[in-house]
Structures are given as C-alpha cells and as structure tokens.
Write a protein that binds this DNA or RNA. Sequence first.
DNA 1: TTATTGATTGACTGATCAATCAATAAAAAA
DNA 2: TTTTTTATTGATTGATCAGTCAATCAATAA
Lengths: 191, 191
Amino acid sequence: MPKTGMEPLRRAALVDAAIIEIGAARSLDVTVAQIARRAGMSSGLAHHYFGGKDQMLLAAMKQILSEFSQKMCAGLHQAKTPRERLEAVVHANFADHVFDRSKTSAWLSFYGLAQSNDQAAYLMRIYQRRLRSNLLFDLKTLTPCADEIAAALGALIDGVYLRAALTGAGPDPKASETVLMTLNALLGDTQ
Amino acid sequence: MPKTGMEPLRRAALVDAAIIEIGAARSLDVTVAQIARRAGMSSGLAHHYFGGKDQMLLAAMKQILSEFSQKMCAGLHQAKTPRERLEAVVHANFADHVFDRSKTSAWLSFYGLAQSNDQAAYLMRIYQRRLRSNLLFDLKTLTPCADEIAAALGALIDGVYLRAALTGAGPDPKASETVLMTLNALLGDTQ
DNA sequence: TTATTGATTGACTGATCAATCAATAAAAAA
DNA sequence: TTTTTTATTGATTGATCAGTCAATCAATAA
C-alpha cells in the first residue's frame, strides 16, 4: 500500500473530511482524530501532512472559498451585459451548493475564528475584496455612486446568506430576489 | 463576609466578567476559571450559581441582547414620524456601544454557537423577530411592499454590522449611511 | 445557645485532545 | 543488494478543563 505520491491524495481527503465533520458537529469543535478517521487514516498521519489542526481547518476554508470563486467565474463568463453580470454575481452567492450544511456551518464558524486567527481573517478579507471588485466593475458603468452601492450590496449579500444559514433550512429561494430588488431600487434612485 | 443575598450580585458579576473575557479571547473559548477569577471568586462558586458553563455564556448573550433592546426602545420613544422611527432603529443598531470589542466578539461567536445550541438559536430568533417587527410597523404606513423591504433591511443591517465587527475597527461612521441610503432607494422605488 | 442555611473555597476527578515519537513497511535510489 | 526516502500506525505524553465534593465560615432563626 505505501506508495509514493500519497501526499496530495491524503491532503485532499483530509480537507474533504474536515468539511464533513464541521458540518456534522455544526462547529469547528472537531477533533483531529475524527477528521482522520473519516478520511480513512490515523491521526498521526493527519498531523504529518498538515503540521497541526489549525492548518487543516484553514485548508478547509480555503477550499470552500476557491470552489466558490471558481463557480462564480463560470457564471460570470456566460453573462454579457453589466446588468447580467451583476445578476450572475448575486445568483452565484445563493446557488444551491453554497447552502450545503457543511458549507454554512463552516462559514458561520469561520466568522468566529476570523476574530482571533490572522490567517482566517485574511481569507475573509480576500473573499470580501473579490465580491466587492466583481460588483464594482459593472456598477461603475451604471451609476456614479458605484462605491456606495457596492458596499451596500456586499453587506446585503452577506446578511441574507447569514440569515439563511442560521435558519438552516437549505437554499433560500427569496435570497436572490431580495438582493435584486434592492439592486434595482439603488440603481433606479441614482440614475 | 458571607452574607445573604449574594446570588444576584455574583450572577451579575459573572455575566459581566464573561463578556469581558469573551472580548479578550475574541472567542467563546474562555474557561470558567478565567471568568470566575475576573469576577473575583472561585470557579466552584461560578458553577454553584450557574450550574454550568453554557448557562453562563447564554446569560451573557441574553444580557447583551436586553441591554441593546432597551436602548433601542429609548431611541424609538423620542421619534415621532414613521420615517424618524425607522431612522432611529437604524441608528440604534449602529450606536457606539454595540461596537465594543466585547460585544462584537460575543456577537460573532454566538453566530457559530447558534448552529449547535438550541437556546442560542432561540435568542437569535428573538432578536431577528424584534428587529423585523420594529421595521415592519412603520414600513407598513409607507409602502405596500413592507414585508420584502423589512426582510432586505434586516439582512442589510446584520450584514453591515458583521462586516464592521469583522474589521474590528470600532464604530463604523458609514454604517447608518449605507442602510439609510438603501432605505431611501427602496421606498422611492415603490411609491 | 444551638441548629440551620447560604456562601465560599480549592483540591480533586475524569475525560478529552493535540501533538509527538518510536517502530514498521514498502518503494525508490544508489 | 544496500541505502535512503516516504508512508503509516497507534500508543503515549502532557496539558487543559468542566464539573464535583467535602469542608469551612458566618449569619440568622429557633
């Protein structure tokens, strides 16, 4: 069994297992042993590849963010007009896959972690900057108040997601609707 | 020293100490011993009065919520017109005192706790319902879309607060501005 | 005075866990 | 073949904590 080149496989399995365990525990209070067992290996091996528990949790967060950002890009490439692209950004934030229990659990818990862990805070900032820049790019072509509107929309998207995630009832069909209604109002008022 | 009637004093001291410790640790990972020491008593006594750690943390959350709700009411009573009352609700949510490090830390951490702890989730729902009903009452007199607008504003308030709390830079002067701009846009569009 | 009750301590228990480590085994390189 | 490198285990260590408990002290009630 012991072959070479196991590292990437093991790391991927551990990250996936970590996300599942976070979802099952509904918190970051998961043990390395739990994650390792779920990934089909010993706890020692998990430490061997990740150095420590924090690094595993951060890797899980990174994976969630990068998967999300990848799907966002895919949606953006299909949209043509500024308006379509803005709608694509909104829809990407509320796609079904982001409401997986594992993802919502991880996301809400990371808000807590980001207060005390610099790397977690950094990842959060990355996400927020990306969202902001995606919104700003098209808003600039539609309104002189692009900065203010981007700030409002970014916060609104986070708030709507937060509330849906807290409710824990899976995808919220009204989420996009709420944000798009607000987007229309904000654009209508400043044109 | 041992007098009668210590219980309410001790409980209050423990709740205050818990909030301070949560702020210092920037998470709910605080020990009963830490809290008790900060409150000037032994860990045994803390258990004696609260039964367990969870009850102490929930009491802390309750206190934050009720202090907040109290100040909100005070602000509402001074406002006369529906528009003024809506603005009072917004300003209450972003008053300086809600940006104390201890409060923001507790608030963000409780988002995580509310996923796994039923009582914490219940408290969160109380808060959200109260905010919604405060908004709805006056929106109903101003627009036929009161429900949708209240949902959007509630989420926006949470989102703006979340982002400011994550940044950790204290009161955000633009917070009220952002929400009020959006409120104006939403009302203007539907009148 | 003598129970009784409330207040209070801090040592102790039992459980949990992250991290380490020595040992093993198999593949790859020499 | 021999050596080195990589993969892997699981027992162990050391630390942390929540919660318990027996014992003490002081005030009040009988």
